[in-house]
Design a protein around this nucleic acid. Structure first.
Length: 393
DNA sequence: TCTGGGGTCCTAGGACCC
DNA sequence: TCTGGGGTCCTAGGACCC
């Protein structure tokens, strides 16, 4: 039997949060945006959108379109609080929710709506109650898979409710332009349009080899999605972070060594603190650079012993800068720690390893099969120190 | 007067190992 | 006078999402 999956998405969340904080902004053109010379719009209220303002637009451009637009800087503490309220509200209906981002989640409503005679009325009530309790507005999609629910919640905004049943896929989903399909971005849709795939339906019915070439193995995932065969698993556990990074765009492009070095230090410090807070250490340090032509480049270094110390992160990042980018005019610099492992996990592996090595050198052979790859690396390392590398097979 | 910052996943080539 | 095959890890870049 099909599950009932809900996707619920807060409408222009950051702008809405600001209105909750400053009710006098209600109904006015408002943008949440950076105000430096290189600031961009993060979210625009519906009133601001009427002027043609969109998110990701440079702030100066928004001001050109609407000189009277009200501007506020992002306030992430506020968003975090409201976001928690929102998720807690949804949890009143079901504990099975998957947080997809700060302003959206999936919920498995199978149990809670199994005897529901009028799902639209039910969801309207859910939506209205959220508004009454928090003043947050949302759009809701209900469908048998996560992909369809996500597409559904996108169809009517603000305060929309859309249900896609399997039998309605061809009628409701397939006519949509291919660029509106989740997972198809601005680089891919022109390539698809060029080979005559203009709608989701075109893609669903398409059988060209070229399409597979464009999409790689994502092709098969997208095909499933388009036919309502996507995942309906709502994953409640938050996944462990895979990387922790920090980057900053300079107000003016620079090649000044001290300025860049000091920024690399600031970012290394931020990354180090955040990693420590998460009890994570990482093997790989990456330096990210965007040059004055907007070209992104990265150089990375993987070390033997995972770390989150400011010294290790900074020294490695600076070494990468010194080696590859000195005297280059740059726009942005960033530092990322990845290949993460929890501190605890690492120490358990190390002590296990040490104990076994003391017991019997030959135990390495057994260990190899038991330990994960990260640990394997350590054993090879130690084994080679003992001159036993060739015995490990 | 140009275009932020936080992430995830995929790809393709090369190094290295047995 | 020719140059395996499989597997893993690392690197760099690219696409996408919010």
């Amino acid at each position: 039997m099909s599950k009932i999956i809900m996707h619920i998405d807060l409408n222009c969340f950051f702008a809405r949060a600001q209105v909750i904080k400053e009710p006098e902004l209600e109904g006015k053109p408002l943008i949440i945006a950076g105000t430096s010379r290189r600031g961009i719009v993060s979210t625009a209220s519906y009133e601001a959108r009427k002027f043609g303002i969109n998110s990701a637009m440079p702030t100066y451009m928004a001001l050109k379109l609407c000189p009277n637009v009200i501007i506020r800087n992002p306030d992430f503490n506020l968003y975090h609080d409201l976001s928690q309220k929102f998720f807690n509200y949804v949890k009143k209906y079901t504990e099975i929710i998957e947080i997809a981002s700060i302003d959206e989640c999936y919920a498995d409503m199978t149990e809670c709506m199994k005897d529901c005679k009028d799902p639209i009325a039910f969801l309207k009530k859910l939506q209205d109650n959220l508004f009454n309790e928090t003043k947050l507005m949302c759009s809701i999609g209900l469908a048998p898979t996560k992909f369809l629910a996500k597409m559904a919640s996108d169809m009517k905004k603000p305060m929309g409710i859309t249900i896609i049943r399997r039998k309605d896929i061809q009628k409701l989903l397939w006519p949509l332009p291919i660029k509106d399909m989740f997972g198809i971005g601005k680089k891919t849709y022109p390539k698809l349009e060029k080979i005559n795939i203009k709608t989701i339906g075109d893609f669903a019915l398409d059988n060209q080899d070229e399409t597979k070439k464009i999409l790689g193995k994502f092709y098969y995932v997208l095909k499933d999605w388009a036919y309502g065969k996507g995942s309906d698993e709502v994953i409640t556990e938050a996944s462990d972070p895979k990387s922790i990074g920090n980057s900053t765009t300079f107000l003016f492009d620079t090649d000044d060594y001290d300025e860049i070095r000091s920024m690399i230090y600031q970012e290394s410090l931020d990354v180090s603190k955040r990693a420590e807070k998460e009890s994570k250490i990482g093997y790989t340090i990456t330096l990210n650079i965007k040059d004055s032509d907007f070209k992104m480049m990265s150089k990375s270094e993987t070390i033997q012993v995972p770390t989150n110390s400011i010294e290790d992160i900074y020294n490695n990042a600076l070494k990468l800068y010194d080696t590859y980018f000195v005297n280059k005019l740059i726009r942005l610099v960033g530092v990322t720690l990845s290949n993460l492992i929890s501190k605890k996990e690492f120490y358990v592996q190390m002590s296990f390893f040490d104990i076994e090595m003391h017991k019997e050198k030959c135990a390495t052979k057994i260990l190899i099969n038991e330990l994960n790859n990260k640990c394997k690396k350590n054993i090879f390392m130690k084994a080679s120190e003992l001159g036993e590398k060739n015995d490990v097979k």
